[in-house]
Design a binder for these strands. Structure first.
Lengths: 270, 270
DNA sequence: AATCAAGTTCCACATATCGGAACAAAGAAA
DNA sequence: TTTCTTTGTTCCGATATGTGGAACTTGATT
């Protein structure tokens, strides 16, 4: 619900040769709101007509897109299948899962696992109580790092130089009145997070939603991640979050250590 | 658990030009069991060294693969994100969802929604009771059509010629003692399914698992799909499945009609 | 009929890909 | 240590592929 208007002006130089262009077009279609006509994509992608047409044909042949009878393009099923395999084969998630569960047992609230990718957090797993909501609703979702608990926690692990590089590239969109609006305030909070070992989301991404998060570092790997406990403001006070912060830090540390062992030595067991 | 040994000998002529090769390599890595070394992929993909190396670099640059410190390649997060968008933006699933829920209310067992892609069924949604199991465990999973209820139901909607073309390309792997072993027996059952309007899975894919399924046809679209109610044999008798078959057919028909309306006229509402 | 827009096809040209072979780096054996 | 072997990376000329402007359908609208 807190989605930007996003006109997606394709930004700067498109990616790696041919594949880069194909992926840019694919993304333009997938990230759009509904089925896309040829002309829509033409405008959005900036590619010349002939080129675009060929790219789309290839994407359809590969099953990454589907062309409907009315000529609209939609995401194809192959994406789902690829993602299914890469998710169910993800060992890091596998290691983390029991810890997410026990954190959920303890708190009764929703627990997330997220991985930092550049300037965004990608949610990789989730344990929640009431399954009235769509089940895997968030898996694969990417949110800005600067306004999420996990995001800020993960950022706090980066070397200062790297951090500053990333922050420089952020566009601070004000999702709520509490969202960080500048690099300075974000960097200041990250300094605190480094000291405390945990981060809060004080209704910064979505109003009425709070969380407490802790960063995960896996020695020997360069992935940066985090976990969080999230709840609605009416049920979860800041005091409550502070009370949980120790458990969250402990769980995060445990995941980090276990992952370092199970992910390190080659491609290990089952 | 019922996985083939699959040495994936890349089959015949690789796909559409450059993109096709890239996707073949990507798939080789994603479908493999664990992190893959360069040499593993070299053997599996059949590409020459130089070419493969460049392809892998590009896939990494695009975020479709990740190269770890130990040089192993793994699926990248971008796949998850793409799949998240294409799943949550899928209107067909959206239309079907309430029907899946009410079918679940009625039966108390797990309900699946699947779409036919060539000779496989791809699971697109799932409603289950106990969430002790991994939540979205099946979304995106592809199973052979000939040994699943939804698969056989969906096949029954195809024109005979198309059906025979597909069946000709199937390799009948015997997952259980009850799995179809030949085109003849499959085609015979499909004739029955056309007559009855529903299909059963009599422990054909996994032992101790049964289901009843009905096909979904969406007029004006060329997608072929199905829904099923699945349960463990000890709890769900064949008589029980027969008793549910009417409700399953009704739900399938309702989904088909509603989808025809909501998917037809352009790119519709919210 | 005439007009306009959307989508598809064509083809001379440029360039990204191809893939063998040489090169570097890291282990394993001697 | 030195030598041998295995694994990963880089190079570069030949050429297949992709490029993109323009011409050509198709079909809706006036």
């Amino acid at each position: 619900m807190s989605e930007e208007p996003t006109v997606i002006a394709d930004g700067e130089a498109v990616g790696t040769g041919t594949l880069g262009k194909a992926m840019a077009v694919l993304e333009a279609v997938v990230m759009a709101d509904g089925p896309q006509r040829f002309t829509d994509i033409l405008a959005r992608s900036g590619q010349p007509r002939g080129t675009l047409h060929r790219l789309l044909s290839h994407l359809v042949e590969e099953g990454l897109l589907v062309q409907r009878r009315d000529l609209c393009y939609e995401p194809g099923l192959r994406l789902l299948t690829l993602a299914y395999r890469s998710w169910s084969g993800n060992r890091f998630r596998d290691v983390a899962e029991p810890h997410l569960r026990s954190l959920h047992e303890l708190t009764g609230e929703t627990v997330h696992l997220g991985i930092l990718r550049e300037t965004e957090i990608v949610y990789v797993d989730k344990v929640e109580s009431r399954q009235t909501v769509r089940m895997s609703s968030q898996i694969g979702k990417a949110s800005p790092a600067y306004c999420t608990g996990i995001g800020k926690a993960a950022l706090s692990l980066l070397p200062q130089l790297e951090l500053e590089r990333l922050v420089a590239g952020m566009a601070f969109h004000a999702f709520t009145p509490h969202t960080h609006r500048s690099a300075e305030s974000l960097l200041a909070e990250i300094a605190d997070i480094r000291r405390d070992g945990h981060a809060f989301d004080r209704e910064e991404h979505e109003i009425e939603i709070r969380c407490v998060a802790a960063p995960i570092r896996v020695s020997g790997s360069d992935l940066t991640a985090g976990i969080s406990v999230t709840g609605p403001a009416y049920r979860v006070s800041m005091e409550q979050l502070i009370a949980w912060s120790g458990a969250v830090r402990t769980a995060a540390a445990a995941i980090g250590e276990e992952a370092a062992i199970r992910l390190g030595p080659g491609r290990g067991g089952p």
